[in-house]
């Protein structure tokens, strides 16, 4: 499968203590394990099972995903920005791969 590409939408600046909205999307098939191939054999499950967002090392938001999450998992959530720093996003695949992305934010 093509390398999953994370996309993140986050404001570049915020005022101290402001609650911002973060939107994330990653391209991934999210094979549920319920589908069958042409010969009727079940296609093994391969999904992203965990998503985390951390700000300067502190966890902000976490999600455990089950096969019922759509392909190209999308998340929208809020985060409080106490100071300048960076948000780190991590996706964990069933096969053990970890996809990461980081976005800086400046407090004005």
């Amino acid at each position: 499968m093509a390398n999953p590409k994370p996309r993140i939408k986050i404001p570049k600046t915020a005022s101290a203590g402001e609650v911002i909205t973060i939107k994330t999307l990653i391209s991934h098939e999210m094979e549920s394990g319920q589908r069958k191939d042409k010969d009727g054999n079940p296609i093994p499950r391969q999904i992203i099972n965990k998503f985390t967002c951390a700000f300067n090392g502190t966890t902000v938001f976490e999600c455990d995903l089950d096969p019922a999450i759509s392909a190209n998992p999308y998340f929208e959530f809020n985060a409080k920005v106490p100071e300048s720093g960076s948000f780190k996003f991590t996706w964990v695949d069933d096969d053990g791969s970890v996809y990461e992305s980081e976005q800086a934010i400046e407090v004005k």
């Binding site: 911002i20 549920s32 976490e62 999308y74 985060a79």
Partner: peptide, 22 residues
């Protein structure tokens, strides 16, 4: 089971959106 969200003090508010299969 569809998803489990865990929030923290840095979440600001307990809101989340995602897309699921039914």
């Amino acid at each position: 089971q569809v998803a489990t969200f865990r929030f923290s003090e840095l979440s600001g508010s307990a809101e989340a959106t995602t897309r699921m299969r039914l």
